[in-house]
Amino acid sequence: MKACKQFRATKQTSIKDADAAEKPLSSGDKLKDKELVVGMAAEIAALQEMLYAGQQHKVLVVLQGIDTSGKDGTVKGVFNLVNPQGIQIADFKAPSTIERAHDYLWRVHQQVPRQGEIVVFNRSHYEDVLITMVHDWIDEAECERRYAQIRDFERMLAETGTTIIKCLLHISKDEQRDRLQERVDDPAKHWKFDMQDLEERKSWDKYQELFGKAINATDADHAPWYVIPANSKTHRNLAIASILLETLADLKLKPPAAKPELKGLKIT
């Protein structure tokens, strides 16, 4: 079964019922799976070169997930071989004073891909319907308005040539506990730990509920959601790389046509 079909969110997706430890693409050998990811990363890099050369398509990859779900690890594992000229990573943290003075999509729209470019959102505009609802900064009516605005925003991107891939990195609560504890126990990883992560962890069930609602409210054929079981870091990368390769293959990328004026040219 193709990865896009394997992980595609369905109507009434319930994140809390999804198995974060599932590994349907695994060979059963972790080393072989890691080697496969490296090979796929090289394929993605080659396709991105054609994407950049052709200047006809734009690709947006949204990585959404709770703290420690592996957004940074996905960027390193899947996109590490891509030429930096053709990829941008946008990391959306708490909005600045200037950003808060604009509508919530203002800063997001500035980061969408240009022709020939892949852009990866490490967190995204979905924060504005997730953390805001968890902390009651907006009410249900405003949340629904934002879902409608996000649907319109993504439809506009798709209609103007952007291919959208949205991945929810799904880990279990126990796995998050272990990853947070690893950061606490290793002084070299203290820079990754934020006490606020513990506060957000208290709202685990609420986040799982809201992830499901966000997916069901905004999943579309032109902006599909994929639920990625992410307890296994290797399998997480394998799944996302597979989805990206299938999506890029559908674009039927090829090098630009040869320039007739260069035929027979001799460099002296």
Rank of each mutant, 00 (worst) to 15 (best):
T74H: 00
I15H: 02
G212V: 04
D178F: 00
F7K: 09
L198M: 13
K233G: 07
R201D: 12
I240H: 04
L47K: 15
T162V: 15
V120K: 06
I267C: 04
L198K: 14
A141V: 13
Q176T: 03
H57E: 15
S96H: 08
Q208L: 14
Y104F: 15
G77V: 03
K58L: 12
R177C: 02
A220M: 01
K11I: 06
V108E: 07
Q85M: 12
D33L: 06
I164V: 04
K30E: 10
V38W: 05
P24H: 10
H222W: 10
V37I: 05
L238V: 06
R8P: 00
F211M: 11
G39C: 08
E246W: 09
E127W: 00
L130P: 00
D185F: 00
T162Y: 05
K213I: 04
V38T: 06
D72F: 01
A94R: 13
S232L: 00
T13V: 10
T163H: 07
K259D: 13
S242A: 14
Y52E: 05
R100M: 11
I228G: 03
H125A: 08
E22G: 04
I150G: 05
S172H: 11
Q176W: 06
S124H: 01
P95S: 03
G264V: 02
E261R: 09
G73P: 05
R155A: 13
A239D: 12
K166M: 14
E182T: 09
G54Y: 06
R145M: 13
G70C: 09
H125Y: 15
M195A: 08
M50A: 05
L51M: 05
I98F: 07
T68P: 03
E209S: 03
V134T: 06
A90T: 00
Y207S: 06
Q12V: 00
G28C: 10
A158Y: 03
I15D: 01
D103M: 08
I98G: 09
T132H: 12
D33M: 04
K71S: 09
E200Q: 15
R107E: 06
E154Q: 08
I240R: 02
Q176Y: 02
Q85C: 07
S27L: 07
V59N: 02
K34L: 05
D19Y: 09
A9Q: 10
R123P: 08
T234H: 13
